[in-house]
Design a protein around this nucleic acid. Structure first.
Lengths: 193, 193
DNA sequence: GCTAGAAGCGAACGGTCGTGCTTTTCTAGG
DNA sequence: CCTAGAAAAGCACGACCGTTCGCTTCTAGC
């Protein structure tokens, strides 16, 4: 890995940390340059525009999410175990300092068209599709009730995570996690045969 | 109502419309002045600072939410009917063009301390408390199961709304509303005696 | 209808934004 | 070790930000 790629990744790491707090739109070339001990123009050279920086931050976070959350889940047995491992990892991911970049970006860009929004939508769709697939697999295996609607279940799964994120970060509610786990237990109990 | 108060309210209306899309931090005195046919300084005179404007926008939206969503609910019979009217109104509120200001602001300020964050937290807490109270009333009336945890139920109620907001605005999923209604039906069926 | 005070305007401020240029410094392959 | 090209710095730009100030215009109570 050359020098350029090395600093590019360092910048993306720091950018993700900052963006979790202030959003992708709140990112600033100047402050980001300070925090990475670079000059504005030196940093800017790695990304040809701010929008490109935002897109790369998203892509970078996405890769980390797959490593830290998705892959461990795929290593677990299909159906309920896999969904539980996914949920665990996801909770840990969302509990990171500053919150979850995807949740922040989703709210920020829900009505601001452009390439960044498109990328946020694509990511969110992919995640929801993955959850839907996991529920569907459980139904196919006979572990979940035959009349389970996988889309509905995935949607409620997402709702539990969003409520957790808000309770944990905004309201600083220390019972947020236990309530999220209980909500998932209920959801799984409802679809289990 | 004097002339000043009249234009102040007109500005707050427009500001709320804009902030639903770009967030409270994305609000700009300049663009807001354009959209209300005022000069920057003329508009600024009504609010002594941008932070004060943001706070007043929140307060304004809060009052409208009480009028449009909370009051109709309080007019319905306690327990399930009241929760259903509340949910209906809340869905309509969240379906407004640009989304729900509270959801946007909650994500924006979840880790940015200051007076605006404090106000957002207060509002969100109040709303959740209200929902909790409604579930508790149902338990007290014997309409809901005695072992219902009102806080847990309110939290899941919130999750359904947040998932709806994301599905409706970001993903533009036309089945968002029907899934939200079904999730509420399930939630109410679980607590009903 | 007069007039004091409210409401609004125009211009300017220091600051920061994203983004180009030119120049210097570093890095890695021969 | 040399050197071509990458990486980073320095500087400047036009635009827009929130805010201030002094001035004009309007409004409402007498």
């Amino acid at each position: 890995m050359g020098k350029g790629e090395e600093t590019r990744l360092a910048v993306l790491d720091e950018a993700a940390r900052v963006a979790r707090v202030v959003g992708l739109g709140g990112l600033t070339i100047g402050t980001l340059a300070e925090r990475t001990a670079l000059s504005k123009s030196g940093l800017f050279g790695h990304f040809k525009s701010k929008e490109s920086l935002q897109l790369q931050v998203l892509e970078h976070a996405r890769a980390r999410f797959v490593d830290l959350v998705v892959r461990p889940a795929l290593a677990a047995p299909r159906g309920e175990p896999r969904l539980r491992v996914l949920f665990d990892g996801w909770l840990r991911w969302q509990s990171a300092p500053g919150g979850c970049l995807f949740v922040t970006a989703a709210a920020e860009f829900h009505h601001q068209s452009g390439a960044v929004r498109d990328e946020v939508v694509r990511g969110e769709r992919d995640m929801l599709d993955m959850v839907t697939t996991m529920f569907r697999a459980g139904v196919a295996d006979g572990a979940f009730r035959q009349d389970t609607d996988p889309d509905q279940a995935a949607c409620e799964f997402n709702g539990v995570l969003l409520a957790f994120h808000q309770a944990f970060h905004l309201l600083e509610d220390e019972r947020a996690e236990s309530r999220a786990r209980r909500a998932l237990d209920d959801l799984l109990a409802r679809v289990r045969t």
